[in-house]
Design a protein around this nucleic acid. Structure first.
Lengths: 255, 255
DNA sequence: CGTACGGTTGAGTCGCGTCAAGCATGGTGG
DNA sequence: CCACCATGCTTGACGCGACTCAACCGTACG
């Protein structure tokens, strides 16, 4: 653990950091990066943030590439009159955005939904690591492409889908992402800390309308939502809401 | 011109290709790539496509990285019932998407709006060029970041702006992009080949509603649109429609 | 001259937003 | 222990922005 600098306030405990590093190694980007340390020092630290707090502010300079190690967060942009659009939901193991590797100022905010643990790599070090071999480069390309694809998905969702379609797609895609993190790939019940206001800001709707759609889904026994948990009861029905839309290929490739 | 392979049908004339290569050198990515050819062969060809035709189909494999050299095109995705969302408007000098560098199958379609000239680099060659020095890498990072930022912009637009705000933002941002290509940076009159149906598919609205908003803008003397040309008459007014929204920093950074 | 395509305009409808009130929960302090 | 409050969820009434359907117009083209 000699690479961990602890000069900042609010540092996570050693055990949390150890857990974080161990966890990070599983993800493509961080694995490649940590491997690269044999040839190049890469400074890194970890810090916790409480639920509801803002981790990064839009426009601020940042010398870090941030990875969410524990908890949920959202990446968003705001317009002055208060309207907020969430650009992505961040789950454990994910980079805030690949833009953080190349840009000095970040163009978005990140807010903690639950208590979170964030690991930060020194941006200059990461950039240097890009040139020492193809592993890091490919890992970064992967992150970048995933981000672009998700953005395209969300765009078509906001531009051309109604409220029910948006919700159905969101639930399915989220469930899929959550399951890809775990051993059990067919979990139907998930921790779900997002508030209806957050859902509204993801889907470009109002929380009241979100509530009504959820109500419909609940009454139709498609899902269950209570006390911070989401259960997908009738996955097929949700897929039916979206499926009519998609060309030929299966949902798996699209969501 | 020894690098140009002409084994494909529908090839552009020699003069067009020369023009294209000359033009490409001005753009960061292509400039870096063409410079890299001193150390590495990079196969390349050019081809024309007629207005309205589809250049790439969603899901198709592609061994090329495509650059639009002349004309306008749109990158889009479709859902089975015919609904289409345009993800980006492609102007001369722009790569279709940075995803083309890393992905074997493309996840979008590209359609020619006008007659276009497209230069295609061999994807494997481009990937190899990434490792020979930082120039190409940085150029690619630039393309990638620009794309991510534009996607975020469009997301907030679709998620949180009404029709007038979307149109105003689109016109301003497009005018800005068009002017950045030319010597005269303050041109107010632009070639504008997009149909109202295209505008609708960009902004997630119907062409009829687009028509009404344009009508309002026209009557308010904000813009003029006729016979394939767009003129921004009252830029300040358009900015006012968006400005109220933006935090502190000026429009320039945002649009 | 007919056809096709895209733009324009009107009437009516509906999805979603707005406003407003009520409810459940959990934390706090007296 | 219970008032008190803050936060987030739920529900109803109503209005508006955007969609749908439909007709008409102008231009380009064979």
């Amino acid at each position: 653990m000699t690479h961990l600098s602890q000069d900042h306030t609010d540092l996570a405990s050693q055990s949390e950091i150890r857990c974080a590093t161990c966890f990070l190694r599983q993800s493509g980007f961080c694995g490649a990066l940590l491997d690269a340390r044999s040839r190049l020092p890469i400074r890194q630290d970890s810090r916790t943030t409480g639920a509801g707090e803002t981790i990064c502010f839009e426009g601020d300079p940042s010398e870090y590439v941030c990875i969410l190690c524990h908890g949920w967060a959202v990446r968003s942009k705001q317009i002055a009159d208060g309207r907020r659009q969430i650009l992505s939901v961040l789950l454990p193991g994910e980079m805030f955005s690949s833009m953080m590797i190349f840009e000095e100022n970040i163009s978005f905010s990140v807010q903690a939904v639950t208590d979170v643990l964030v690991t930060r790599f020194n941006r200059a070090d990461v950039k240097s690591a890009l040139m020492i071999g193809p592993a890091v480069l490919h890992a970064v390309a992967d992150v970048c492409i995933t981000e672009l694809r998700e953005a395209d998905q969300l765009l078509i969702c906001l531009g051309r889908c109604n409220a029910e379609e948006r919700m159905a797609r969101f639930f399915l895609s989220l469930s899929r992402r959550l399951n890809s993190h775990r051993v059990n790939h067919h979990q139907r019940r998930h921790r779900f800390p997002l508030r209806q206001q957050d859902l509204a800001d993801i889907m470009g709707l109002t929380p009241i309308h979100i509530n009504r759609v959820i109500g419909r889904f609940r009454r139709a026994k498609y899902i269950e939502m209570s006390s911070g948990y989401l259960t997908i009861i009738n996955k097929a029905a949700l897929e039916r809401i979206c499926r009519c839309q998609f060309k030929d290929r299966g949902l798996a490739k699209i969501l």
